[in-house]
Every structure is written in structure tokens, then in C-alpha cells.
């Protein structure tokens, strides 16, 4: 049920878009829904990040994998894993976002005969994750050819690199193959490994199915049931210039693709996909470990009125002297 429910949800989205197009609701699926989806995405994203940003960050979290900066010159600091400067933090964050460094350290735990507990390196999740995210990004950027009147050279270079094997016509994009392969692996991982299956929720399967649906509908219309691509670009340019048009004869696969993408945009700020923004706010990644150099004041401390010893002595000096107690100032 945990798997079937999200699967049916994605199938339902496909059916809704298909039926809608058959009922001539192109303007709804091609104009209203995409505008609403983009608005929800942007506003929802900002609200989520704002809420995270409003929570106080009381202290630095030094439990990171590397030697902290020390006063002893012969102890070498690990400047990236345990940075004390902004530049180090930037490098650590960049590596985390671009190559998923902490996922690279992923381990698996196994119980061997003995009984013996063994921790081994587990790189497939990292590899599939990286392949998935990078091919998604490249496909997304390649799509900008539909969004710009003259297609910039950078995007044309990306297209030719992505299709450099020159298989078939239209040329096969490698990222299409990689994306579908990686998403399938990430799905199978949740089904095949019993521990992972146990902790997986519908909210874990739904985005996988949705993205797979988007990719498959895109691949379907590029290589198999063709759509009227000149019409697609007219529609997109109409949306961007706020004078929407619905060109005739685009083909229903496009509206299915677009509806699934809109669903993804709407779902994004409500779900775990917000890790896109959240990764930048991870406390163990985005703070320099300078607890010994800088005084960090807990933001929710009450202002405490401090009565120092000097003030105490000033107040009670005479009484203390009378009682024979030692005082610092005569």
C-alpha cells in the first residue's frame, strides 16, 4: 500500500491531464495550472526558508570530520572538514552541494558470523544520487531552449555534448538514459533492501514516481509519439510574455508532461524535496567552527542582571570590615 498509493496518485495525474485535453481544456492545463504552480512554488519555497531562517542558532556544532584549528602549530587543521573561516565554509558547502561529500561517507552495517558487526563502505547510493541530480539539472537547463527566443550558445553546446554518441534521430540524449536508470535504481533500492523498505513512506515513493513519470513522458514525446514542438515553444513564450496563447495541435503527451511538472512544482515546497533549500541551512555544514575564537551568545538568553564581586564589596565593605572579613580594597 505504501508503494501502490503514490503510484496510483501519479497515474491519476496522468489520467486527469489526458481526459482534460480530450475535453478541450488546453487553456486550463496549459495556462492556468502552470501559472498557479510557479506561484505556489516560489511563495512556498520562500515561506519554508523564512521559517527555517527565523529559528535561532545558539551555538556552533563542532562535531565534524576533521581536526579543528588549534593553537599548537604542529597540529594541522583540516581546513575544509573543520573550517574556521568563511572561505572554508564555502568550500565545504560547495563540495557538499556539488558532489554530495557527506553521502560519499555513507556506510552499511552488516552482522557477520561470530557474531561480528561490520561497517563497510557503500557507494552506490552516492553514485546513483549524483547521477540522478546531475542529469536532472542538465535536462532542466537544456529545456531553456523552449524558454528563450534565440537559444544561447551554451545550451546548444550542452545539447551537442549530451548527444555526442549520435545514436538515432532525433539524437539520443545520454542524460535521458542516466536519469531513468538512476531513478529506477533509487526506487529499487527502497523495495529490495528490507531495512530501507521498512522506513520508506508514501512521501518517499511519490516524488520518485512523479519524476519518473515526467522523464518518461518527455522521452515518449521526443523519440516516439511526436508533438508539435514549434507550437510548444509558442505556448511557452506566450506564458513568459504574459500574453498566453494555445497553439493548435500540440498533442496530449505534452499536456501530460506539463501537468506532471506543475504537480512537482506544487508538491515541492510541501515536501522533503525542500532539501534543495535546506541543504544550505544544515548547521553542521554552514557554520565555521570558531567557538574558541569568537564568543557566541545564546540568542534566547534572558538579559541577566549581574552583580559582580566589586559591586558586592562596595556595597558591604563597612559591614565586612566590622565582621573581620578580608576585603580587596581598603
Amino acid at each position: 500500500m505504501k508503494i501502490l498509493l503514490p503510484l496510483f496518485a501519479v497515474v491519476a495525474l496522468v489520467v486527469i491531464a489526458f481526459v482534460g485535453v480530450q475535453a478541450n481544456l488546453q487553456a486550463f492545463f496549459g495556462i492556468v495550472i502552470p501559472y498557479a504552480a510557479v506561484a505556489i512554488f516560489i511563495i512556498g519555497f520562500i515561506v519554508r526558508v523564512f521559517r527555517w531562517g527565523s529559528s535561532p542558532v545558539p551555538f556552533r556544532i563542532p562535531t565534524t570530520a576533521g581536526q579543528m584549528k588549534s593553537f599548537a602549530p604542529w597540529i594541522k587543521q583540516n581546513k575544509i572538514d573543520n573550517p574556521s573561516s568563511r572561505l572554508g565554509v564555502f568550500a565545504r558547502m560547495a563540495l557538499e552541494v556539488l558532489v554530495f561529500r557527506s553521502l560519499f561517507r555513507n556506510t552499511k552495517t552488516e552482522l557477520h558470523d561470530g557474531p561480528k558487526l561490520v561497517y563497510g563502505s557503500e557507494k552506490f547510493l552516492w553514485l546513483a544520487g549524483l547521477a540522478f541530480h546531475w542529469s536532472f539539472l542538465i535536462i532542466f537547463v537544456r529545456h531553456f531552449r523552449f524558454f528563450m527566443q534565440d537559444v544561447p550558445t551554451v545550451i546548444q553546446i550542452m545539447e551537442s555534448l549530451d548527444s555526442f554518441l549520435q545514436i538515432g534521430a532525433p539524437l539520443l540524449y545520454l542524460t535521458d538514459v542516466v536519469l531513468v536508470g538512476a531513478v529506477t535504481f533509487l526506487f529499487l533500492r527502497r523495495v529490495v533492501m528490507p531495512q530501507i523498505k521498512f522506513i520508506s513512506l508514501p512521501a518517499d515513493y511519490f516524488p520518485l514516481f512523479l519524476i519518473l513519470g515526467i522523464a518518461l513522458s518527455g522521452i515518449l514525446m521526443r523519440y516516439f509519439t511526436k508533438v508539435h514542438i514549434v507550437g510548444v515553444k509558442e505556448l511557452v513564450m506566450g506564458l513568459l510574455s504574459f500574453s498566453p496563447v494555445i497553439p493548435a495541435g500540440i498533442g496530449s503527451v505534452f499536456y501530460i508532461h506539463l501537468f506532471l511538472v506543475s504537480a512537482l512544482l506544487i508538491y515541492f515546497p510541501l515536501s522533503k524535496l525542500m532539501h534543495m533549500g535546506g541543504v544550505f541551512l544544515s548547521p553542521t555544514r554552514n557554520m565555521a567552527n570558531n567557538s574558541r575564537e569568537v564568543r557566541h551568545i545564546n540568542p534566547w538568553n534572558y538579559p541577566v542582571h549581574v552583580h559582580t564581586y566589586q559591586e558586592y564589596e562596595d556595597e558591604f565593605r563597612e559591614k565586612m570590615k566590622k565582621a573581620g572579613l578580608p576585603v580587596e580594597k581598603e
Binding site: V49, S55, F147, M148, Q149
Partner: peptide, 29 residues
């Protein structure tokens, strides 16, 4: 240290720079 303001500004600037690109790229065409 609360920095919601800065973060929201960064996110908005990022959105405008990246997703807004097609808009200002297409202006006048």
C-alpha cells in the same frame, strides 16, 4: 544568530537571477 532576512533576500535574488533569466533575456524580442 537569526538571519531569516538575509536568507530570504539570498533566495529571492537567486530566483530572480536563475528563473528570471528567460524573462529579461527575452525582453524586446
Amino acid at each position: 544568530m537569526k538571519n531569516a532576512g538575509t536568507i530570504v533576500i539570498v533566495v529571492v535574488v537567486g530566483f530572480v537571477a536563475f528563473f528570471g533569466f528567460p524573462f529579461y533575456y527575452n525582453i524586446g524580442k
